[in-house]
């Protein structure tokens, strides 16, 4: 019995192990994402071309111009959306919250399309526009969530209604400005086929800053999760901390949406999966989400571009097929807990 007890890992040990495993997973996903595709490329072939400076070699061209931007885009989008989800769940104290469920992604998407329509010559402004859209939506949901009588499910239903309104706004823009955004249909479901290294230049800074802020505030997320009264009694400025966390979530969601479109459910699946495995300690949850979110989207994108070859399905569709049933399961579980 005692021996059995000794073998059980503590949450801290599980957390550290999860960070290590997810880091290895992201490395494997990166290598797989770059080498596997319609034509498989061996790392040796690429490095040979790279060492020789042979920029015309097909291995070099495919990796640099097609696979690498896409894999880096998947890594950045997956990491940022997974961390954004874990932040929103902690701040709203609602396990059903995620950037796609409560409308934050749609808020970012609306301003991306609006910016593309009104300022077509300024693509560098897209991440900023997406951030503002995400922030305004997140603050609106946040203000609603602070109402005492708002249940978890009511908050989610309001988020879904808000997503519909913002979605209608996006459709209006696409009807009024049909040429505003090239690949608008992929944008609406979320996809990485149009990602270039150039298109990642601005969002990468937003995401790095967002992830850094999330790492710095992961202990504060634990205190916030204890509830307002306890957090205040420990000397935390709860309002300011919550605003900073929502601000960080908006930076992350906005930057991801600006180049990958409305990718759904990553912010729900990854934090929940790791809460189940390692518990709710954000010291370990946030770094695990950074690596696991990135690895998850890279691998999903790999499946979506190879499973139906020569056709390609936007990764957002695959994620919706996975995330939709998972979300329904969470709602049923949440209602069951309330009834219990």
């Amino acid at each position: 019995m005692n021996e059995k007890k000794k073998k059980q890992l503590t949450n801290q040990q599980k957390g550290r192990l999860a960070i290590l495993v997810t880091f290895l997973l992201v490395v494997i996903a990166l290598v797989s994402g770059v080498t596997i595709g319609s034509s498989n490329i061996s790392p040796a072939a690429f490095f040979e071309a790279w060492a020789k400076g042979d920029t015309t070699a097909s291995a070099y061209r495919i990796v640099i111009h097609s696979r690498l931007p896409r894999v880096l885009g998947a890594l950045l989008a997956g990491s940022s959306l997974a961390v954004c989800g874990s932040i929103l769940q902690a701040v709203l104290q609602n396990p059903l919250a995620s950037p796609s469920v409560i409308g934050v992604n749609n808020g970012a998407g609306l301003l991306v399309l609006l910016c593309s329509a009104l300022l077509p010559s300024r693509p560098s402004l897209l991440p900023l526009a997406a951030f503002l859209g995400a922030l305004l939506t997140a603050l609106a949901v946040f203000a609603l969530a602070m109402g005492k009588s708002v249940s978890r499910v009511t908050l989610v239903l309001t988020g879904i209604a808000m997503s519909s309104i913002l979605g209608a706004g996006m459709n209006c823009i696409m009807i009024l400005y049909p040429d505003a955004y090239i690949g608008a249909s992929t944008f609406l479901v979320g996809g990485l086929s149009a990602v270039t290294l150039k298109s990642l230049e601005a969002p990468v800074w937003y995401i790095l800053i967002g992830l850094l802020l999330a790492m710095m505030m992961r202990r504060d997320m634990n205190i916030v999760s204890l509830g307002s009264d306890t957090a205040r009694s420990l000397g935390m400025s709860v309002g300011r901390t919550r605003f900073l966390l929502v601000f960080t979530a908006a930076i992350l969601a906005g930057a991801a949406v600006s180049f990958a479109g409305l990718i759904s459910f990553v912010g729900l699946i990854i934090p929940h999966g790791f809460r189940f495995l390692i518990g709710n300690d954000n010291r370990y949850l946030v770094p695990s989400c950074i690596f696991a979110g990135g690895a998850f989207v890279i691998l999903c994108d790999l499946v979506s571009r190879t499973a139906f070859a020569p056709y390609e399905v936007p990764v957002g569709i695959l994620l919706s097929f996975l995330g939709g049933p998972f979300f329904i399961y969470l709602i049923i579980r949440s209602r069951r807990r309330v009834n219990d």
Partner: peptide, 15 residues
């Protein structure tokens, strides 16, 4: 202050 109602967190006692 030990406040009245807690949503017991899923964390270890030491944490």
């Amino acid at each position: 202050l030990l406040s009245q109602s807690h949503q017991p967190p899923e964390i270890e006692v030491a944490d």
